[in-house]
Amino acid sequence: MTQNEKIFLLVAETLNISKAAEKSFVTQQCVSDHIKRLENEYGTKLFHRKPYMHLTPAGEIVYNSYKNISLIEENLKKNLSDFSSERKGYLKVGMSTTRSKLLIPKLMEKYHKLFPDVQISFFSGDTKILEKELLNNKLDIFLGINTRLNLGLNVETVCEDFLYLVINKNMFKEYFSKNDLKNFKKGVDLNKFKNIPMTSYNKTGALYKLLQQHLITHGIELHNIPCYTSECDVQIDLCLNNVTFSIVPRMLAINFLENTDIYFFPIKDFNYPLRVDLVTNQYLEKPLYIEAFIKILKDEVIEFSSELFL
């Protein structure tokens, strides 16, 4: 990348001429001159200076393009350093903590036998957070839910899952009858749970938005939510301790399905797809060890899904 382009990226990311100058070890006037040259070259303003500094629509396009160029250059250097052997390298993978517990043990057992010289770091977070990390080249792959379409992302849906309501049997007895148990096995009406303590998802997560779609569509308001967490195993633990009920993907509840202390119910009229997506950066080349990891990860997810819904 040219110096103009590198300094533009710094300004676009800091939205501060002074900070960009400090990071690039030049004067503020020098930074301003670089931006002015780019604006003259493209014949349009790239930043609004007032009432605060922010990108123009044209600046957004330039930023996304330069960011992809930067990622491609970084990846080129990485690939060339690993060129002598595509069986050696470093891999950064993102997925939720609960999925990590389910998938990583068997996944690593298979993968490490084939690629013993590849070092893997696993990172956790909501899909929205992992998406941003991938676009910033801080991840190579992530497993997410209902990933948004983005020009920089290659999104492959591996399987679909379903949301289930989880409630402790003692809590169920406190609020419902045996007749309700029979009816709920066909699908629960969340209106009947609006005053019962619930653990919900953090508002940045894809599952929170998916659940909100259902609630808004059916005119349902849940009034008693004392706790928020995106970790499904924590939600189920709270159910086991009779603190709250929760709504979790069935795949992530697999280790608890045989537990005799809690009930699992499908949700009535829940018609929103819950896609499990494997996401990579479409502009980056993938050496053999990454392609192999993707294949094994997909196989593990599909196997979990197949066993669950037999």
Rank of each mutant, 00 (worst) to 15 (best):
Y263P: 05
Y201W: 10
E300L: 05
V11E: 04
D261M: 04
I262L: 15
E258D: 13
E133D: 09
A58V: 05
A58K: 10
Y208S: 07
L10T: 01
N136I: 03
G205E: 15
N154I: 00
G152V: 01
I262Q: 12
F309N: 11
L114Y: 08
F270G: 02
L55V: 01
I254D: 07
Y175H: 12
I247R: 15
E231M: 05
Y283A: 09
S230F: 05
I254N: 08
I290T: 08
F293V: 06
K268H: 10
E22A: 08
Q29W: 06
L55S: 00
V158C: 03
G89Y: 15
K286E: 12
F8W: 01
S18N: 14
V234S: 12
V166A: 09
F264A: 10
T98L: 13
F309M: 11
I61P: 00
N202T: 04
K192A: 13
I145G: 01
F270Q: 08
L149E: 11
N4R: 09
K78F: 14
N136M: 04
I129M: 07
K77M: 03
N150Q: 13
I302D: 11
T229G: 09
I290A: 03
Q282K: 15
E73H: 07
P249L: 08
N202G: 11
D269M: 12
Y66T: 00
E258F: 10
R275D: 14
M251Y: 08
N154W: 06
K194G: 02
D269Y: 11
E300H: 15
K110T: 14
K77S: 07
E131P: 07
L149I: 02
Q119R: 10
I220D: 07
V166F: 07
K113M: 09
F270M: 10
K173L: 07
F172R: 12
A12G: 02
Y208V: 00
Y263C: 09
P226E: 06
P51H: 08
P249E: 05
V234K: 13
V279H: 08
Q235N: 12
